[in-house]
Design a binder for these strands. Structure first.
Lengths: 102, 102
DNA sequence: ATATCATATCGAAAAACTTCGATTTGAGGT
DNA sequence: ACCTCAAATCGAAGTTTTTCGATATGATAT
């Protein structure tokens, strides 16, 4: 039961940090490699790597290697999954509108 | 610049905790008062109150008083706002697809 | 093979989040 | 006015997240 929600936590955690949101905004304009992302952020290299891992784990960002460099882009598929999750969470299914407890 | 993202963090934080996701699932079937929510959760009264505050601050949940009791329900408006945010975050606007740095 | 460079990982410190029990607040009931 | 009960707030403890500097890994170039 608890593990059921763990998936959703992993996804939405992507959007719960200002640095990650800034990274996502940068990726909106097209794929980027880590060094490019680093330029506009006020964090160290290891911190960026940490955030990119969280973003990739969420599925919202995809990465691939090109030589020494790691490239990142927004994953359409991952975003679609996030949207579906949000839709599922927020859609009411009024089964007991009348069952008031107090 | 930082405050721009703070809004989004506040919204998505609602979905980043298993207890809060469980609360949201309970609210999907209709409005509930705190005591009803408490029954199905393994946390104390003050912790529930803490989570409800985060949910209400996000806008995803709305609350109102009925006598001594506080009632909660999913806010259609708040959910719509969250969806729009997610849409905005994940929609690519390919302005520099060619600008590869490395 | 050695050196170099980009990124990932590690370990520890700092910051933020979550939890609890105790107290406060605020609405009703007597 | 006083008591009771539901929920909010407080302060402290426990847990998780984020950060950094140092080191490891892995690919390329010399």
């Amino acid at each position: 039961m608890n593990t059921e929600y763990q998936d959703q936590v992993t996804v939405f955690k992507a959007f719960c940090d200002e640095n990650r949101l800034q990274i996502l905004e940068m990726l909106r304009s097209g794929e980027k490699c880590a060094c490019k992302l680093q330029e506009n952020l006020d964090i160290g290299q290891s911190s960026l790597s940490y955030h990119m891992k969280i973003l990739c784990d969420s599925g919202v960002v995809a990465s691939w290697q090109v030589g020494k460099w790691t490239h990142y882009k927004i994953s359409e598929q991952g975003c679609e999954r996030a949207k579906q999750m949000l839709e599922a969470i927020s859609t009411t299914n009024q089964t007991d509108e009348d069952t008031n407890c107090c």
